[in-house]
Structures are given as C-alpha cells and as structure tokens.
Simulated assay, not measured.
Amino acid sequence: MKIAAFNVENLFDRPKAFNLDDQAKGSAITDAVAEINMLVNKDEYSAADKARMLDLIRQLQLTSPNPPFAIFRKIRGALWKKPKNGPLVIVAEGRADWVGWVELKTEHNNATAVMNTGRVIKAVGADILAVIEAEDRVALKQFSEQVLLKLGGDPYDEIMLIDGNDDRGIDVGLMVTNGYSVGLMRSHIADMMPNGQRVFSRDCPEYEVITPTGERIWILPNHFKSKFGGNDQSSVNKRAAQAQRTAEIYERLRGEGQDKIVVLGDLNDTPDSVALKRLLQQTDLKDVSEHSDFSPGTFQGIGTFGTGNNANKIDYLLLSPALFARVKSAGLFRMGVWTASGRWPMFPELEKPIHAASDHHLIWVEIAD
C-alpha cells in the first residue's frame, strides 16, 4: 500500500495574485479580497465599514473596466454609486440591500507544468493520494481522466473533494485506486475557534479508506494557514489552532478504537515550530521522514519545498504507531520541482521554472500489507 501527499498548487487554474514575483503584493491582494468580502457580508454597514470598503475598492481597482487581480460580481442591487460630479460612494446600508461578492481572477497554468504534475503522480503510483490545492472535484476528475490517461497512466477510481473555507480554489482532496475505496466521510469546515473564526483555512476532512483486503484506514488531509506574504502572530496562532484541532480529531479516532490513521499534507511550518507542537510532539503520531528507511533521494535535505533544505520541511506524512511499524520504505519525489543548481534530476520536459509541477516535493510511504 503506497500513500502520498502532494501540493499541486492548483491543477489547471491559479489566482493571478499567487503568481506574482512580489509575494508581499500578492498577499496584500488576497488579504484585500478576503477583507472586503468579510465587510460586505455584515448585516449593517457602519461609516467606518463604508470608508474601508472604498479603500479596498480603490486598492483592487474594482471600478475599472478590467481589474488586474479581482472581479466584482453583482447579482442584484448596488453596493456603490459613482455620481457624475463626485467621488464613489457606498449606497448599500447592509447585506440585505444587494447580492454580490469579490473573487480573485485566475489564469491558466502553463500546459507543460500541468503535464509534469501528471508525470509526478504517474511516476509515484500511489494507491491513496492526498492532493493539496486542488480547485474542486471536477478539476481533479478531469485531471485524472485526461492528463493521466494522455501520459499512459490509469485514472484514479474514486475521487473525493469537499469544498472548504477558502474561496480561492485551493482545497484538499483524495484520490484512490487499485481496489481501494472511500467509505465514511466527515468534514470539519464548521469547527470554530473561541474568537468566532473557523479553525481550518480549508478543511481537515476525515476519509475512511477501505483497502482491497478489507482494512479500514482513516486519512486526514490538511493544508494549514500559509506564510505567504508574511508570518505575523495571527498566522502562527491560526496554525496552532489548526494543529490543536487536528490532534483532537486524531485522538478522538484513537479513542474510538481506530489504530490505522494518517495525517498528511502541507502544514506550512517546520518540525520545531511552536505552532505544530501540539500535533507533532504531543500525540503518538510518527513522521515518516524519521523512519530509518526514509530516503530523500540524491539530495539529502529533508525539505519538502523549494530548494529542499531542511529548513524547508513543511509537508508531512504522519502515521499512527500501528502503521508506522509496517513502513517498508518512504521518501520524497523531486523530479517535478525546478532546481537551477542540479540538486536532483528533473523531468526532461522541465526546461525552466514555469514548467515545474509544483514548488512542493511529493512525500510518500509504502506500508506492508
């Protein structure tokens, strides 16, 4: 049984703001979209709310014929009005006065990069694959049925993705094949923090996977709060809350008598971080990168992002003790990641950075039956 996790950074379409070389600018754009959507969803708009909306509208250039990074969607009613001889004004008094929202503009991924993503997945051949930053279930299904098939691979038999809390099209999904099937499912998109915010930036779904021999394994894909554009205390606190809740979900499953559990995905922080302590150090989960049979490949760093240095370890495959005891081999697959210095072999089709399948290195484990 081979299990893997791969942050594909969107399969076909990606928010334009994510592709900016200036990460701070990209983060400012995504934060502005999130903030204006939060403001417009209020029941009543205060004077301060309206003033801030106007700032964000100007920042995102929403009144221009072709805004560069975001789109204003208006279904009915009006949020603002532009008098002939005066400045823009917010005319809605609250959510009930109009229907609409702001969304990030997307652009197609490079075609070679899409195929290289398929090459990574085909080469690894995982029976159970957690996919991070997939647009939606339809995109995952199309990718499996079209890209993998075009590369001479077999499409995955079952594909599941529950839309999460992120409105930018970066959800977590699951693909299974070779006689494996998905049983029970449970979402945690509605789990709340004491401050009234949702815990998970995306979701921490629980998937019961049934093996060809009838074993039942619980898979918990995850994608914690990003450091994209900065890592302030609120971001650290958010990841800490996500680690706390994931640990609680894991411990609940253990308390219910489940001993075959996998927590995996992009946790966006390092093993020594304060944010991940509750999950990594205060549960009995075992990190496959610490197994004696773990191999990072020709480059010996255990980092899972970018240059692969140890400080770049942010993707994880964590096993309950019963599964960790059955590990046959584990490692990182790097051939879809760009390296200018030749740290690892790349696909021949990966001729420049834009052709990279992802900035993340796929992490995998093979478990004895």
Rank of each mutant, 00 (worst) to 15 (best):
K2H: 11
N10L: 03
N10G: 03
A17R: 01
D21G: 14
D22N: 13
A24M: 10
A24I: 13
M38F: 12
V40R: 11
K42T: 10
K42Q: 15
K50S: 03
R52L: 07
L54P: 00
L54Q: 02
L56H: 04
R58V: 05
L60R: 00
N66S: 14
F72G: 12
K74H: 11
L79Q: 03
W80G: 03
K81L: 10
G86I: 03
L88W: 01
V91I: 15
E93R: 14
R95S: 11
A96C: 06
D97I: 14
W98T: 10
W101D: 14
E103V: 14
L104E: 12
H108D: 13
A111Y: 12
M115W: 12
A123C: 07
G125A: 08
I132L: 12
E133M: 11
D136C: 12
L140T: 04
K141N: 13
S144W: 11
V147H: 04
L148R: 00
L149T: 14
P155G: 04
D157N: 12
E158S: 11
I159Q: 09
M160F: 09
D163F: 07
V182R: 08
L184E: 15
S187R: 10
M192T: 13
M193Y: 03
N195H: 03
F200W: 06
T211G: 01
P212A: 06
N222M: 07
F224V: 08
F224A: 05
S226T: 15
Q233N: 14
S235E: 12
V236H: 03
K238I: 00
Q242C: 08
R245S: 11
I249Y: 04
I249P: 10
E251K: 08
G257L: 04
G257F: 09
K260H: 11
D269M: 09
T270H: 06
K277L: 04
L280K: 07
D287T: 10
F294C: 04
G297C: 05
G301F: 07
T304Y: 04
F305R: 02
T307M: 00
G308L: 02
I314K: 02
D315P: 01
Y316T: 06
L317Q: 01
L319A: 07
A322V: 08
R334Q: 03
R334Y: 01
S341C: 00
S341I: 09
W344Y: 02
P345W: 05
P353G: 08
A356R: 14
S358P: 08
D359R: 02
D359V: 02
W364H: 11
A368V: 09
D369S: 13
